[in-house]
Amino acid sequence: MDPQLVEVSQQFERFKAAFVRKDYDTCSNLLSQLKVSLTKFRSLPPLFENTPNANNELLLAREIYEHAVVLSVKIEDQDAFERDFFQLKPYYTDAGNRLPPSPQEYPILGLNLLRLLVQNRIAEFHTELELLSATALEDRCIKHAVELEQSFMEGAYNRVLSARQTAPHETYVYFMDLLAKTMLLFSSDQELLEYIKDEHPEWEVKNGSVYFQKAKESAPCKEIPSLQLINQTLSYARELERIV
């Protein structure tokens, strides 16, 4: 065994121990050290050099990044999630044929889909979806995210809410909670009052109920949009003159 590899794996063991203890501060510290040491391996992306230990190194690095992704969910840091996920992705796509499949792969991919959904990045959501194979789409975790998106598009919000109970993985709960928040699902009256004060001061609260301002009736426009019509007609005349 390569001494460097041994050192990193020992450090990773310490990280995992801290992770189980839920000591997330230590985890974050250890993780940044781990990431620095990973840069010394030449077999990892983007170099992909074929060193004698390549497979072991790749496996270790993949596991470290998988933990990093999960950790970022635990400490509720979406930016870190995105960074770590993109670092992890090449291990699934480019090194996938060299390594045995990871049991964490589908849960993490599903988690990423969920994140894109929560952040309302639907175009990226679909781009990611195209990369998944038919077997991946059958997976419980990924199906969960895909069905959620469908319910969203249809407007079946009650299904979105009930999906929280059926979350396939403990890490999914964080994003599901974020979803619930965007749908104004509050756990207490107090939260609702705060929300109204911050976001919609024009709403009135009287006798325990909320009064919405009626949207101003848009008066039916009986007028002819003359300026626009003149512009259009003039442009037709100009174009026609060019043709004749």
Partner: peptide
């Protein structure tokens, strides 16, 4: 599947 589904779907379609 359910009336609740229908209600929220109709609501979104109106919106």
């Amino acid at each position: 599947d359910s009336v609740a589904d229908a209600e929220s779907i109709v609501a979104k379609a109106i919106r």
